[in-house]
Amino acid sequence: MKKPTILLFFTLFLVLMLISPFEIAMMYLVAVGMIYVLVLYYPQIMSQRSYSDLNRELPYALRHMGIELKSGKGLHDSLITIRNADYGSFSKELNRVLEEVKYGKSTEDALLEMSKRSKSEGLTRAVQQIIGTLRVGGNLAYSLEVIAKDISFDMQIKLKEYSQKLNSFILIYTFIAILAPVIILIMLMAGSTVMGDIISTSVLMLTYGVLFPMIVMFMGVFMKKLEPKI
């Protein structure tokens, strides 16, 4: 967050502290903090979604490429075959690579840029193996099959870890999104019968109409952030 934005944010917070109840000012602080986090991570989430199918398709594409290489085809012809086989985002990226090579860029540079764009560990390993083979030689078909097996195994481990995290997170999410609003409302109703109004109606409406929905949305984004790139 830039300095002018931070200054404006705290100025508004201080003004609210002076002209409104403390609860309103604190809700403003929490709401702005959540909005900032959402704005910060939204581009990353959209970028991850644009390549969401790449890691799922990558093991099959690498095995297919290995079979093509074993059949005697060269690397360039194998890449064309994988591009035409429609492996989702991976085929689209290969199409871009082949177009860049067609217009003069080296195969190594085009593949490296592809791995940087996708930010996929498995694809980066495969690209490094392809480039290493282009430079010093080796059995690329066998190496790609080994990488495909490793990627599949890593995907299974990540899914298992994510499911364990998700089980714990669901308990917290259920409490905050469902139980907490009900418990707080019951406590306020019980307290009001004894001591009168504890908080104003406007604050209560803001809490249930703005604060809790924002907390639920924030937790949903956080849950999406934990999702493995598979």
Score class of each variant (00 low, 15 high):
64 H>Q: 09
66 G>N: 04
68 E>I: 09
68 E>Y: 00
68 E>V: 08
69 L>P: 01
69 L>R: 04
69 L>A: 00
69 L>W: 10
74 G>P: 04
76 H>N: 07
76 H>M: 12
77 D>V: 06
79 L>H: 11
80 I>T: 15
80 I>F: 14
80 I>S: 15
81 T>D: 12
82 I>M: 08
83 R>M: 14
83 R>P: 00
84 N>M: 10
86 D>P: 00
90 F>Q: 06
92 K>Q: 10
93 E>D: 07
97 V>P: 11
97 V>T: 11
98 L>R: 08
98 L>S: 15
100 E>P: 10
101 V>C: 14
102 K>W: 13
106 S>R: 02
107 T>P: 15
107 T>F: 10
107 T>E: 10
107 T>H: 09
108 E>T: 06
109 D>A: 11
109 D>S: 08
110 A>V: 06
114 M>P: 00
116 K>I: 12
118 S>T: 15
119 K>N: 14
122 G>D: 13
123 L>V: 06
124 T>E: 15
126 A>I: 12
130 I>A: 13
131 I>H: 05
132 G>L: 12
133 T>I: 05
136 V>Y: 09
137 G>S: 02
139 N>H: 11
140 L>P: 01
141 A>G: 00
141 A>D: 08
141 A>L: 11
141 A>F: 11
142 Y>I: 13
142 Y>Q: 15
142 Y>M: 15
143 S>R: 07
146 V>E: 10
147 I>Y: 12
148 A>K: 05
152 S>N: 06
154 D>R: 09
155 M>G: 15
155 M>F: 09
155 M>Y: 05
156 Q>P: 03
157 I>N: 03
159 L>F: 06
160 K>W: 02
162 Y>H: 02
162 Y>I: 04
163 S>Y: 08
163 S>P: 01
164 Q>G: 00
165 K>D: 01
165 K>Q: 08
165 K>M: 04
165 K>A: 05
167 N>M: 07
